[in-house]
Design a protein around this nucleic acid. Structure first.
Lengths: 166, 166
DNA sequence: TATTGTTATACTCTATAACTATA
DNA sequence: TATAGTTATAGAGTATAACAATA
């Protein structure tokens, strides 16, 4: 690709091995992979009018319908102010609604609409298929292994002070 | 913590399980973990006057001294304009220098100074120790497994069009 | 007083595009 | 013409802080 420019500057091994030292860090590997996933995920979700943030919110709300924005913010580990934007966006496309709560007029109960459910199901299938394709060099056992290790890693990593960091 | 606010709004299982549906996606798990790592990494690197970006650049340059900024940008998967900032920052603290190249006066050969090497060695130890602590619930075999799977995943994921996307 | 949702603002990281000096 | 490095600008994602309504 392009010219190698190999006379004056040190020749590097290969585009994919020259960060060998960096790759010994789990965190860096994670970052690198996540960046790629994020990029593709954004493209996969675009036709559905979703972003990673709105897709994630939808997933949580499919799981736990009726929760408040504050609860959603805690689950997604983002601030309440960030949730407003996400919920606005989903409400604007008719995927969810803010329902008033009788006992407490400060909060909204978030509910995915039937249109939202359909949207979620289609998007979810697309994302699943996409992940499968992405990790195509890993077989089923590998993925399972990876999921298990990531699951334990996330527990281990977030074990110290999940909720209200400072 | 704080009050559970459990009367009017649906009670959710637990702060750590309420994103169960989301966690089935490898990408989401990766994001969640990377966010936590990033946060802690930033804190670990701060006393050394480094950020994740400058730490990464240093790692690459320890591995491949003498490369150009353009080469560095390709390895780190960021744009050349981004590299300028990183290199400026490292040069300002005396960790590396831009050496003119005889045959081509457009490029600089990047070299870590001896002070930079010392800095790197100290920071690297701190980060290593930190990663070990972070993944404390995973034993040595687990980490090795994880590294192997991530290594294969990153290959699989980036297999299509590494260098000049589009 | 404390909390929910909201708004405005700022910060970080990265990308895009235009420029310069060399090739 | 093309490339290396640079600069200015903008966008995405998220955090901080202040505010009104409600508890």
């Amino acid at each position: 690709m392009t010219k190698q420019h190999s006379n004056s500057v040190v020749k590097i091994k290969s585009m994919n091995e020259s960060d060998a030292l960096l790759r010994q860090f789990v965190g860096y590997r994670m970052k690198r992979i996540y960046m790629l996933i994020q990029e593709d995920m954004t493209r996969v979700l675009e036709p559905f009018g979703l972003r990673i943030g709105t897709f994630s919110a939808l997933a949580v709300l499919m799981d736990s319908p009726g929760i408040s924005q504050t609860q959603l913010s805690r689950i997604l580990n983002i601030k309440r102010s960030g949730v407003v934007v996400v919920v606005d966006e989903l409400e604007n496309v008719g995927a969810l609604e803010r329902r008033p709560v009788a006992n407490d007029r400060r909060v909204y109960a978030l509910h995915v609409t039937s249109a939202g459910i359909t949207l979620w199901e289609r998007a979810e299938r697309a994302v699943q298929g996409h992940e499968t394709a992405m990790f195509s060099e890993l077989d089923t056992d590998d993925i399972e292994q990876l999921q298990m290790l990531l699951g334990r890693a996330i527990k281990s990593v977030s074990g110290r002070g999940e909720s209200d960091k400072k």
